[in-house]
Simulated scan of single mutants.
Amino acid sequence: MIRPPVCRLCRAAVNDKGISVSEQIALFPLKTVLMPGCHLDLQIFEARYLDMVSRCFRQQQGFVVVGLEQGSEVGTSNLRFSAIGCEARIIDWQQRDNGLLGIRVEGHRRARLGKVDVAADGLVTAEAQWLPEALDAPLEAEHDELLALHAALQEHPLVSNLQLPPVDGSQQALAWQLAYLLPLSLEQKTSLLALTPPLERLDRIGDWLVQMQA
């Protein structure tokens, strides 16, 4: 059985009665981190994931993209992944020129991952506790440089092809999209995913950018 490491930064989601809310959900371990509101294109060819996508279509449910810290994206041997991931919902699909299924997913809720199981077909599932989100806030003048950086990133063809939704003056949207698009390490991106306040996420991104330019 594969067990993810404990994430000390994560908190369990609770319902309006203060009771922890969780459900068993399929995992898609990748060497990248999906962020809420962001888009990711995936090519599906393994039988376990083709079956998973089929169930997602039929049951109108998602799966969790989780950062792969050790092991291969293909197979289930010696996997170690982050203890927090992001729910992915399929928003588009197509048959690619190579005959494989291509899907585009959008990030939704953040999930803290608990007990892990591996099905007979190799599909990894985990108990997911959905994390609450902080209230959004408008961007301030101090965020102008980050907003300009975001605009510059949008000019790249690979980014423009993702058709990310407009930021529209939102701290939350700007923070998630910068965390997703900037060339940060898997560990850095995972730590940003674990943060709840958008202003704290923007501040940390700003600090890292200063360090990168030093």
Score class of each variant (00 low, 15 high):
residue 65 V to L: 11
residue 207 D to Q: 14
residue 148 A to H: 07
residue 65 V to T: 10
residue 98 N to Q: 09
residue 30 L to H: 05
residue 179 A to Y: 00
residue 121 D to C: 11
residue 75 G to R: 11
residue 200 E to T: 11
residue 110 R to M: 09
residue 86 C to I: 03
residue 130 W to Y: 06
residue 47 A to G: 04
residue 93 W to Q: 15
residue 6 V to R: 05
residue 142 E to V: 15
residue 155 E to V: 10
residue 40 L to E: 11
residue 170 S to V: 01
residue 39 H to V: 15
residue 68 L to D: 05
residue 211 Q to S: 05
residue 34 L to I: 05
residue 115 K to E: 13
residue 86 C to V: 10
residue 116 V to F: 13
residue 165 P to K: 02
residue 95 Q to R: 14
residue 214 A to Y: 01
residue 158 L to M: 06
residue 26 A to D: 14
residue 6 V to P: 06
residue 45 F to S: 08
residue 45 F to A: 10
residue 181 L to D: 00
residue 165 P to G: 00
residue 214 A to R: 12
residue 82 S to M: 08
residue 46 E to Q: 10
residue 104 R to I: 09
residue 190 T to W: 01
residue 210 V to H: 10
residue 160 S to W: 03
residue 36 P to M: 07
residue 42 L to V: 14
residue 3 R to H: 05
residue 103 I to C: 09
residue 67 G to W: 03
residue 196 T to V: 15
residue 102 G to N: 11
residue 43 Q to T: 14
residue 89 R to V: 15
residue 160 S to P: 10
residue 15 N to V: 05
residue 48 R to S: 11
residue 86 C to R: 03
residue 187 E to I: 07
residue 131 L to T: 05
residue 19 I to F: 04
residue 56 C to H: 05
residue 110 R to Q: 14
residue 182 L to E: 06
residue 77 S to F: 08
residue 45 F to D: 06
residue 109 R to S: 12
residue 69 E to N: 11
residue 147 L to Y: 04
residue 208 W to I: 01
residue 106 E to S: 10
residue 14 V to F: 13
residue 118 V to K: 07
residue 136 D to Q: 06
residue 66 V to W: 04
residue 179 A to K: 02
residue 37 G to K: 09
residue 50 L to P: 02
residue 179 A to P: 05
residue 56 C to R: 02
residue 78 N to K: 12
residue 18 G to L: 08
residue 118 V to M: 14
residue 195 L to P: 02
residue 181 L to N: 00
residue 209 L to P: 00
residue 117 D to K: 13
